[in-house]
Design a protein around this nucleic acid. Structure first.
Lengths: 220, 220
DNA sequence: GTCTCGTTGGTACTCAGTATCGTACTGGCG
DNA sequence: CGCCAGTACGATACTGAGTACCAACGAGAC
């Protein structure tokens, strides 16, 4: 016999899928789970929470990873922190996908999801602020980096949730690649005096770069 | 005699400020406004909406500005679209600040605000997608640009809402400057083959840039 | 006058969420 | 075995948001 909490979650998912979110009352969920109404609200503060994952534990783990970042390892810390979240969803598997489908159709749940995402952004921002606040435009860049990391992560995560990508290793690789874009702001500040140059990528053929620069400036 | 809608808004702001959001019932608001309960819900779908601005009109104007962007004027379109939103808040003046204080303390309103912000991000993303989807990593970069523009705008807007900045012209200048960072992703893609060069700023002394590049690459 | 039509007020209802109480089921300890 | 915590559960009653529906009022059209 599964625990009452698990029965409630299962019953809720079935009823929501069958007759829709709004048309399902908490009483029905409790009845189908063979429990009392009080028990439902004892386990889930609101009706929404029965389908939303417990972000608390996840946020805590992300927080821990970001807290232990040496100045040199900040970019790695951000990547791994995003990886922690991704791993959680991948491990959830079909449950995460069912929740995604639900959030796509039910406004109330979608709004809750958005609010949850914002908590991750805030958490990331909190740490990046510590790193950048003394730099020029640090506070702004901190927020840009934080939101960009989450955007990049979620962009790929959605591909997996929709089933566009199915392989876990591929998904992880895509997130890594997406974070290249997101972390560009972290690498170089935009100074307002002279032009700022940001060069990324592995190939370091100086003369080729110079040719590219001349071409780019000539065109502009 | 102001319209019933205006009286309801005024009554709501006063009661929320005086006794808190949760402790205020819709009946009280209606009573203070000298109207019936039905009238309240006829004007505002939910209790939250009485303090939230009508984003519909604003979203529409932003949409219009973004829709009429030539390929060369895309960056300008994004800047002006952000400017439209900023101008609206600046025109609201103290009302916007009161709402900000309310959203800072009441979770329900804060969540609604977050959901509203997300609608702007989606609208921006919708247009930027049209522009970038065919480019490498276009869809991701579109979302990064959209969220970054909104983040940058809101970062400065919050400074004004808090009163850290009070002058309208200064605020507009700060937004313009903040958007420099946000639009970096729009300017250059990060290719994975050779190095990618992103050059920002107004000074276009090619030889100086080339010297900078050589120095940067020499160091690395 | 009266016939609409839009705005309003009033009433009754559903349902989420809160508070409170009594009860069953545990494990530990004498 | 009897007693005693602590804990999970169920039932009831309540508040308040949001919905549905209906009756009344007022302003113009004819």
């Amino acid at each position: 016999m599964p625990t009452a909490r698990d029965r409630l979650v299962a019953a809720a998912f079935e009823l929501f899928a069958g007759q829709g979110y709004d048309a399902t009352t908490v009483d029905e969920i409790a009845a189908k789970a063979g429990t009392g109404r009080s028990t439902f609200f004892r386990h889930f503060p609101t009706k929404d929470d029965v389908v939303l994952p417990d972000h608390e534990a996840l946020l805590h783990r992300v927080d821990e990873r970001l807290a232990t970042a040496s100045p040199a390892g900040r970019e790695v810390a951000l990547r791994e922190a995003a990886g922690v979240v991704l791993a959680h969803y991948l491990a959830e598997g079909e449950t995460a996908r069912a929740r995604y489908r639900l959030a796509s159709t039910v406004p109330a749940i979608r709004d809750r999801e958005i609010a949850s995402v914002q908590r991750y952004v805030r958490l990331f921002a909190q740490h990046v602020h510590r790193w950048l606040d003394t730099e020029p435009d640090g506070p702004l860049r901190a927020e840009l980096v934080a939101s960009s990391v989450v955007i990049a992560h979620n962009h790929v995560l959605r591909q997996w949730l929709r089933g566009d990508v199915d392989d876990a290793a591929t998904t992880r690789a895509l997130v890594d690649r997406a974070l290249d874009h997101a972390l560009a702001v972290l690498r170089g500040p935009v100074t307002d005096g002279g032009p700022t140059i940001v060069i990324t990528g592995s190939d370091r053929d100086v003369e080729q770069v110079v040719r590219d620069v001349r071409e780019a400036l000539g065109r502009s």
